[in-house]
Every structure is written in structure tokens, then in C-alpha cells.
């Protein structure tokens, strides 16, 4: 799939950029957020929290968080949530990124 130009209504839309907040000591390491984050923003950390579990941490492309809030909804422990950082304007760069993403060339999506 390839976009040959910016969508005509790109002016009225924006890309939400989220900030993931993790309350590490509440985590029980079930892995739901890591597995089901649609943008694969999370991975298991090497650290231990106070309970002895490995809490999630952000992976390198953390700006991929679009503040969808699924991690917060699927977390059984009230240990993770997202906040809206900014509503970014859509640029051609974003289009390119999205195109790559959903063409499944992105390595992180191989497991799906």
C-alpha cells in the first residue's frame, strides 16, 4: 500500500502523540500491555520491581504511542496509562512511516 500524496483532509486531522506512564511497583508482569499494544511500544524490562516482576518499559521508537489507551484498559493492575502529549500535524514523513508499518515490513510486526 502506498500513498502518492498527503490525504486531502490532512489539515483537519492530527496524530495524537501519547506519553506512556508506568507505575512499576504495581505491575505483576502479566505481559498483556506488551503483547497487545497496537503500535508495539512496550517490551519487558530486565529490571525487577518491588514485587519481583519485570515491569514493561518503552522500546526505542517510543514516539509511536498514539495515546490509544489500550494498555491502560487491558492492564489488570492499574499500573500503566497514557497521556496526550501533543496533537501532531500530519506530514509526508508520517505517511511514509504508516505505509511501511502496515506493509508489515516493520520487524516488530512480524510476530503478528
Amino acid at each position: 500500500m502506498k500513498f502518492w500524496r498527503l490525504p486531502l483532509d490532512s489539515e483537519v486531522h492530527s496524530i495524537p502523540v501519547g506519553r506512556v506512564q508506568i507505575i512499576e511497583n504495581r505491575c505483576k508482569g502479566c505481559g498483556f500491555c506488551i503483547e497487545f499494544c497496537p503500535n508495539a511500544c512496550l517490551k519487558e524490562s530486565k529490571r525487577f520491581n518491588a514485587k519481583g516482576y519485570h515491569p514493561p518499559e518503552l522500546i526505542f521508537q517510543a514516539e509511536d504511542c498514539v495515546n490509544c489507551g489500550l494498555c491502560s484498559l487491558i492492564c489488570p493492575e492499574f499500573a500503566i496509562f497514557t497521556e496526550l502529549q501533543e496533537a501532531k500535524k500530519i506530514t509526508e514523513d508520517d505517511i511514509r512511516k504508516v505505509t511501511t508499518r502496515y506493509s508489515r515490513k516493520d520487524k516488530r510486526f512480524a510476530k503478528r
Binding site: 505483576k28 484498559l73 489488570p76 493492575e77
Partner: peptide, 15 residues
């Protein structure tokens, strides 16, 4: 923290 085991779905339903 609640009493439910790691991996339990109850917390999700509560959320």
C-alpha cells in the same frame, strides 16, 4: 494492589 493473581482477567473487567 488487589488480591488477584498475575494474568487474571478480573482487573481488566474492573478497568
Amino acid at each position: 494492589p488487589h488480591i488477584w493473581c498475575p494474568g487474571c482477567g478480573l482487573g481488566v473487567v474492573l478497568t
